[in-house]
Design a protein around this nucleic acid. Structure first.
Lengths: 205, 205
DNA sequence: GAAGATACCGACTAAGCGGTATCTTGTCAA
DNA sequence: TTGACAAGATACCGCTTAGTCGGTATCTTC
């Protein structure tokens, strides 16, 4: 009944991964709710049937993007950087400096994928919120742990609360990205991060 | 041809204001793109015809919400508070403390209306971006001016850049709200703001 | 090589969307 | 009192949306 022009060779994992990538881009550009499955499909060569074979609903696709694309992206980088510095202050400064150096149009245009989804989805869908929260928590935890070790080795002021400071640092970063994004200004983003550096330096013992 | 059950008395300004209020709530809950005109109308007793009499498009309605509801809400408060303190540090601390004290479920649930719209709309619609940017700029400006005056009167450290610091403070606040919102935790929000207080205190001469 | 499972295809559906057209009614100035 | 216009009402339109379904092609297993 219908003409069948299918892919000759099959590669389910590739198909799934293509969908995740395309969905990630679409969500980054439009947000989750305004993300269009038709557009995602148009940017891959995947059919609607294949999509719904791999993901039960649009929601499932979105959650998979968070857990399998956004999460790993963020955690790996921070974990590694802080692991290879014995002094957490240097490690944090290095990470911020890296952000300042690599700041470009696309960061300023789309902002932080994590923050975007938090602002849009966390009040609307509890599963999204929890998924995003897991990432935030492990991010904060990595920073807090580094600060604690720094306190133990006498490199970070002892009269501070690592957990709270870590939370504030993460919050500030998201804030800087958000403001830079709205100003459409790489310079504003960088100036904002420079102030965060000042704050971080003030944590040194 | 059509049955006409209309409002007996007319009050165009009230109608317009009702629409703005209902649109504000709907946008706060669902974001702009997912905000439904039908739902907005259902929450007022206004007809679609009346809506489109007052606002040309959904976009126009959104822009009016930003300029006539969100903007004034924010600016008034910060301007007044900083005006009545000769010491900007005290003024800022007072504002943060007020935020900490008045933190409740609804702040944590919906977050900052301004930040929500920035993350969602600024990459998608240049008019939205500019409208939001005007608010951010005047917010940053109020803080920066207060800091400058503080420097002049010797209450704020002279070796700092008021404009950059103001930017960072605003960014941090948005970040704190955003993280508190995702954690669904008033306590986390408050802890985050407490750290901002520490930073602000460090600006004193 | 047959059978069963997995992967994939694309036309279709129902609902919701923003927006429009055409109408009536309230208001107020002349 | 009446004419003009602002304000409001409602039915309707075209379009997009997420999701479904019957069917087919490929792969794996025995």
């Amino acid at each position: 009944m219908t003409t069948m022009i299918q892919r000759k060779i099959r590669n389910p994992e590739q198909t799934r991964s293509d969908l995740l990538d395309a969905a990630y881009s679409e969500i980054l550009e439009s947000g989750f709710q305004a993300a269009s499955l038709e557009r995602i499909l148009a940017n891959t060569s995947v059919s609607k049937g294949a999509l719904y074979h791999h993901f039960g609903t649009k929601r499932d696709l979105g959650l998979a993007v968070i857990e399998e694309v956004i999460g790993p992206q963020l955690e790996g980088r921070w974990f590694n950087m802080l692991a290879q510095h014995s002094d957490p202050i240097s490690g944090l400064l290095k990470l911020i400096e890296e952000k300042i150096a690599s700041a470009d149009e696309s960061v300023i245009r789309y902002g932080c994928p994590l923050n975007n989804l938090i602002q849009e989805m966390s009040p609307l869908d509890e599963s999204f919120r929890q998924s995003l929260q897991k990432i935030i928590e492990s991010w904060v935890e990595v920073v807090a742990e580094a600060l604690k070790e720094g306190q133990a080795s006498g490199k970070v002021r002892a009269d501070t609360a690592p957990q709270d400071i870590a939370l504030f640092i993460v919050a500030s970063i998201e804030g800087c990205v958000g403001l830079g994004k709205n100003a459409q200004s790489v310079a504003a983003y960088q100036r904002c991060l420079e102030q965060l550096k000042v704050y971080i330096q003030s944590l040194a013992a």
